[in-house]
Write a protein that binds this DNA or RNA. Structure first.
Lengths: 350, 350
DNA sequence: CGCATGCCTGAGAGCGCTCTCAACACCGAG
DNA sequence: CTCGGTGTTGAGAGCGCTCTCAGGCATGCG
């Protein structure tokens, strides 16, 4: 008998405490415990202390499911990562955004639910999931142009925050780094260093960040009165190899180049390697500026000039925007643009 | 009146359907709908069809909170990423594991809840969360030696799957790639190519994968009767720069080296760059083999020989193991070791 | 023809929580 | 001394679901 009893006691101890149990331990009603647990407004100091003590002693954690059932909130946030982003895992971007996001989400005591969609069937599943009331809001990164998901979610009243430029016609929050300005600064810097034949390697052009960086590049050239040369715009896809190959081809064609602005550090390294192979010295013959200011920039030889973007902060700000627009029942979307900063290093010395 | 009504109807339609609603639409009881939704055992074909139709028409999705409240399952799996792993985001490893994991989890219609722990306070929060009944099981990757979390969770009856070698004294599932054998194959290959002065750059030594790869290296040398030389073991931390610096130092010290086995491709690239800087030709003077067979290996010049590990499959298998041990109430842990494969390329031609 | 047997089905309890509402005590003002 | 606040507390309903249990019905056997 005794062992069985001991076992039961152990099991009972393992069984998580309920509001009810805490209430009876503290000698109050469930309602009072609930009030204390949720901020403690309108509870007398003595009772509050008693309840807090009981909560601590019993290691009480509210049952999320029960709470969610009545509040109709889930306290969880979906993070959608489209397929192509997984190919970007080689890029530190994703990890840093997630790191920032998860910091804020955890602080707010919410759950971060990760959803990757690799196939069309996944997309179907993901949108069903997101509109099925399983999350209070959705974060989207690495979005491609024309992805219907933001509109789909917004139409169904789901709170959304995107890593994108402000959307005039969609009630969603957006956060973005100032890609245009970053690219502009980079290319201006190259031009100020006396370069005139400035090539660029773009990212995947169906992504807004790639377009914006290209726009900044073009603007800087036009400001400086340098004529447009389509041949110097190499269309990459964020991939290092692809960037190297494009640059290879450009150089093999005999084109003159004295500077390169790459839309990511990874691609800058690809370009660098192609330049080396063709005997060009960096920065003497060709100057290079990348984008991201990732650790890769420091480990390159020479060290890579790069446009620094506050990626963790991007993640944090996305999460904050979303949480705020969920909390404010009005769902007013907010848009934020974070500044970028050019970091000059050896690869673009003039 | 009419607009208000129309609005109400629209709002009602937006309100998710409940079991109750489906039941009355199909002319059956809640219990029957529930049975159909959960597999449909013991329901007559006609009723089942009627219910299925109603479910489809009303776009019914079970309310997870309500279900969870009574079944005491959460249908969600925690994925814990310790701080140091975020520094590994530059490494494609993490993304590929997550990709594999999320594939399986999604298929099983479970939620993947991402938890990162960057500070000690986070750790506290994470373990409270995990033992608070918020998840049915926990996946751990990028674990450091002596991390108390696996034991802590196991003691509290939480199902756990680790990326680690089998744990004899802990009831947790494990999945690992055969690091020892991979390293062994790599170093044997170098020795067979006539190399005798084989250096290695290790990963962070408080991680099992780093230890195992070092063990494989040592075993290969000892098999070949090559005397142990502590000076050739460079202790890295998965970081490219650090690897480059160590190799720099080794070469500057005048040590003879004719081959390098690096515990990751990233570090192999670091070593490669140091060798270049010291005028060593690869593979003529020094052969190199990396580990991971990441895309980086292909983009190096010369292309990097590397030990391929099935990373996505590692993720998938971890998820499968965990789900299985949750489903089987016995919680029998299972351990899997996945084979690695040496891929020979230009960097180790002899 | 009576009865045990097996299969479907529905009624109903209850999971742990929040939140409304009423009850109550206590206060100062009239 | 009564009355209308004001502030604190508890009772109780109910969120949407699962699951046990018992009832109803058809079937097969004695």
């Amino acid at each position: 008998m005794v062992p069985a009893l001991a076992l039961m006691a152990a099991d009972a101890a393992r069984e998580p405490a309920t509001l009810e149990a805490v209430a009876s331990a503290a000698g109050v009603s469930r309602a009072t415990v609930s009030r204390v647990v949720n901020g403690g407004e309108g509870v007398s100091p003595e009772l509050r202390r008693a309840v807090e003590k009981a909560v601590r002693q019993m290691g009480y954690t509210p049952n999320r499911a029960a709470r969610s059932l009545v509040t109709r909130r889930t306290d969880s946030i979906g993070l959608v990562i489209p397929e192509s982003t997984t190919t970007l895992f080689g890029d530190p971007f994703f990890g840093r955004v997630v790191s920032g996001i998860s910091e804020v989400i955890a602080e707010a005591d919410q759950q971060l639910v990760l959803l990757t969609s690799q196939t069309a069937r996944d997309e179907e599943r993901v949108s069903r999931y997101l509109t099925g009331g399983h999350v209070d809001g959705v974060l989207l990164v690495g979005l491609h142009r024309g992805d219907p998901l933001p509109r789909f979610l917004a139409d169904r009243g789901v709170a959304v925050a995107l890593n994108a430029q402000p959307q005039r016609d969609l009630p969603v929050s957006t956060v973005d780094v100032d890609n245009v300005h970053g690219a502009l600064a980079a290319v201006r810097h190259l031009i100020e260093g006396g370069r005139r034949r400035v090539a660029t390697v773009t990212g995947l052009m169906d992504m807004a960040s790639a377009q914006d960086r290209l726009a900044g590049y073009r603007q800087a050239l036009s400001e400086a009165g340098i004529p447009y040369d389509a041949g110097l715009e190499l269309h990459g896809d964020w991939d290092q190899d692809r960037a190297r190959a494009s640059m290879d081809e450009l150089l093999a064609s005999g084109a003159e180049v004295d500077a390169v602005f790459a839309a990511s550090d990874l691609m800058a390294l690809g370009a660098l390697s192609a330049l080396r192979r063709h005997g060009r010295r960096v920065p003497d013959d060709v100057a290079i500026v990348g984008f991201d200011d990732s650790p890769l920039a420091l480990s390159a030889d020479p060290q890579l000039s790069s446009v620094r973007q506050p990626i963790e902060e991007l993640g944090r700000e996305m999460a904050r925007s979303l949480l705020r627009s969920i909390a404010a029942k009005d769902r007013v979307p907010r848009s934020t643009v974070l500044a970028t900063e050019l970091v000059v290093r050896g690869s673009s010395a003039s």
